[in-house]
Design a binder for these strands. Structure first.
Lengths: 172, 172
DNA sequence: GCCAATTTCTTTAGGCTTCAAATAATTGGC
DNA sequence: GCCAATTATTTGAAGCCTAAAGAAATTGGC
C-alpha cells in the first residue's frame, strides 16, 4: 500500500481560496487525548476530594482562587479566572457562604460589586485540603520526568496561545 | 537572592520512609495548565456547536461514539467510553431518542442490556456537524507544528498511563 | 434446579453549568 | 443634572453530572 499523501494544492482559475478538504485527523486525535487526560485526572481528583473531605471540585477550585487573593475578589474576577459563567459563581458562592467558608460583602465604592473572601474556617480547611491535593497531583504525574514536565508546559502554553487566538478570531 | 534549592534528603535513624515535604509545584502548575487548555477549547467547541447546530457537547460526544459503532453500543459501553456515570447516559440517551437521533432496543440475548445506535437522521446530522467540528479543532491547534503535535501526543500518552496507574493504585 | 453474587440499567437527590433575560448601579457625553 | 450605554450580578429554565440506592436479569457454584 503506497503511503498516503496529503491532498495536492489545487490551482484555481479564480482568485478565491482553494478548497482542499484537508486532513485534520491528527489534531482531532490530539484533542481527544487531551480531553481524556483531563477527564481522567479531574475525575480522580473529584473522587478523592469527596472521599477525604466531602467537598466538591468546584468548591475547592473557588476556594483555591480566593486563597491566592487575601483581599478578596469580585464575582466577575472569579468568573473570569475559573472560566465559568456568572450565574454559576453566584450559586457556588451562595452555598459556600451558607456553610461558613466564605464571607461576602458589597463593595463600598461600587454597590453593584460583591467582594468575597475566605473566612478563617474556609482558609484553614482549604489549606489542609490543598496540601493533600498537591500530593495527589504529584502522584498522578509521577511517571513524567522533569524534562517531560517542562516539555509539556511549553507545548501546552503554545496550545493555549493558539486556541486563544483562534477564539478571538471567531469573536471578530 | 540565592537560588532556591530543593529540600535536602534527610537521613532517618529509623528505617521508615523519610518525610521530606517535597516540592510538587511544577506538577501542580502543569495540571492547572492542562486544565486551562482543555476548558478553553471545550468552551469554544461547546459555543460553536450550539451556535451553528443548536446541539450540546455531550450530545455531540455521544453521537460521535455511536458513529464509530454501526452495530450499536450498550449503555455501559458508552458510559465507559465517555467516562461518565451510567445514570448520566440514561438521561442523555432518553433525550436523543426523543429527538429522533437515536434508536434504542433491548438486547435479545440479555434483557438487561439496551443497545443504542444512530438513526438515519442522527447519522446524517452528526456527519454534517463532525465535518465542521474537525475544522474548528484544526483551527484551534493551528499554531502547533506537526512536530509539536507528535510531541504532545507522546507526552499525553505518557501522562494518561501515569494517571491510570496512580488511579489503579488508589483503588487497591 | 437453587440462590447468592454480579451485571446492567434506572431512579433519586443534590449540585453544577450554561444561556438568556432581568435588575440594579455606575459612567460618560452632553 | 440627565439619560443612554455599560457593567455587575441575579434569576429562571433547561440540561448535565455524580453518587448511591434500587430493580431486573443473568451467571456460576453447588
Amino acid at each position: 500500500m503506497p503511503p498516503r499523501v496529503t491532498a495536492p494544492e489545487m490551482l484555481d482559475s479564480e482568485t478565491k481560496a482553494v478548497e482542499t478538504p484537508e486532513d485534520h485527523a491528527d489534531e482531532l486525535r490530539l484533542w481527544l487525548r487531551l480531553l481524556t487526560c483531563t477527564t481522567l485526572i479531574e475525575g480522580e481528583v473529584r473522587g478523592r476530594l469527596r472521599q477525604r473531605f466531602d467537598v466538591t471540585l468546584p468548591r475547592f477550585d473557588l476556594m483555591a482562587q480566593l486563597d491566592k487573593a487575601p483581599d478578596g475578589m469580585t464575582l466577575s474576577d472569579v468568573s473570569k479566572r475559573m472560566m465559568v459563567s456568572n450565574g454559576n459563581v453566584t450559586g457556588l458562592v451562595e452555598r459556600l457562604v451558607e456553610s461558613g467558608h466564605l464571607d461576602r460583602r458589597t463593595s463600598e465604592t461600587d454597590r453593584r460589586v460583591q467582594v468575597i473572601r475566605l473566612t478563617k474556617l474556609g482558609r484553614a480547611e482549604f489549606r489542609k485540603m490543598a496540601a493533600e491535593h498537591e500530593t495527589w497531583i504529584a502522584d498522578l504525574f509521577v511517571d513524567l520526568s522533569p524534562k517531560d514536565v517542562r516539555e509539556l508546559m511549553r507545548l501546552l502554553a503554545k496550545t493555549k496561545a493558539s486556541a486563544q487566538k483562534s477564539a478571538a478570531r471567531r469573536r471578530t
